[in-house]
């Protein structure tokens, strides 16, 4: 089964959300005309990332985090064990140069920086290779994608796509998803997000929520989009309107169900015989 396409059609947010929900293991490669990145996942968690320009070795990450100087890194990388991140990490900890926590934080920061830049790519071919994992000498820090998606969406400065995802603020409301309370506990929300959360109800259109919080269309879209992608809220038709729309259709109460059931059973029997 392929999982291939272009970010134009299926955004970074949507991709990460899919990987998270389907608890995928494997490697996501994304290529734009000028850049490329590889992200690795295990059971739907991000475990490693690097770009075409940065090899993703520990020495490089520690330079970026200000724990090593460029010269130190160059010296390390010139030696064979300097290319084995796990070994190098242990050496540096033993030498008292960095702490275990420093390493974890630097690796994490490095991966997240790469993922967050991906949110700014709107055009690029992607492909997911199932079960591909980084080599064994890399340090893998599992990162929960829910938080990443929320933060990435926060940074998502793209009016058009938001407009596309949430076209109609006047005729859409929000409700909490089934797992919302557990997710709310697992993520850190901004003040704005809490403000929106406090108005979540099928009775309030998104427009009403925006007005109550003095947010403009873009702000409220951004917050709502992030909350949807994090699986905390979902879109519903406002209940105030449901009554107006509740015109009984053809499929409904007028005909006694017994007749209709036998009718459907006849259709089923006939189609089986085609």
């Amino acid at each position: 089964m392929a999982l291939k396409g272009n970010l134009r059609d299926f955004s970074t947010t949507q991709l990460l959300n899919l990987i998270h929900l389907a608890r995928k293991t494997g490697c996501l490669t994304v290529r734009t005309s000028s850049e490329a990145a590889r992200l690795y996942f295990r059971d739907g968690k991000l475990i490693h990332a690097h770009t075409a320009n940065h090899d993703g070795h520990l020495a490089t990450m520690l330079v970026k985090a200000g724990k090593l100087t460029n010269e130190q890194a160059q010296k390390i990388m010139a030696r064979p064990e300097g290319r084995n991140d796990v070994q190098l990490g242990m050496l540096l900890i033993k030498a008292g140069h960095v702490s275990r926590e420093d390493i974890i934080q630097s690796v994490r920061r490095y991966m997240l920086d790469i993922v967050y830049t991906l949110f700014g790519w709107y055009d690029g071919e992607f492909e997911f290779t199932p079960d591909a994992l980084p080599s064994a000498d890399r340090i893998l820090i599992p990162v929960n994608l829910e938080q990443v998606i929320l933060e990435g969406s926060r940074r998502l400065q793209e009016h058009e796509r938001l407009q596309d995802e949430l076209p109609d603020l006047d005729h859409t409301a929000l409700r909490f998803t089934n797992g919302a309370d557990a997710r709310l506990r697992a993520v850190n929300l901004t003040v704005e997000e809490w403000r929106v959360i406090s108005f979540v109800s099928p009775r309030n259109t998104i427009r009403v929520i925006a007005q109550a919080n003095n947010m403009d269309d873009f702000q409220v879209r951004k917050v709502v989009y992030g909350l949807i992608q994090a699986g905390i809220v979902e879109l519903v038709r406002p209940t105030g309107q449901m009554a107006a729309l509740g015109v009984p259709g053809e499929f409904g109460a007028e005909k006694p169900p017994a007749i209709k059931r036998s009718l459907i059973e006849r259709l089923i029997n006939r189609i089986k015989r085609i």
Binding site: M1, L3, A22, R237, L245, G249, F251
Partner: peptide
Amino acid sequence: RSYAPTPYVVAANKQDLSEAWSPEDLRIA
């Protein structure tokens, strides 16, 4: 869906082609 509360299913077509996304991935997408 907005026309009437009628039952429906989604058909993940062209599953014979190698580039096809799986039905599970389509459900999420």
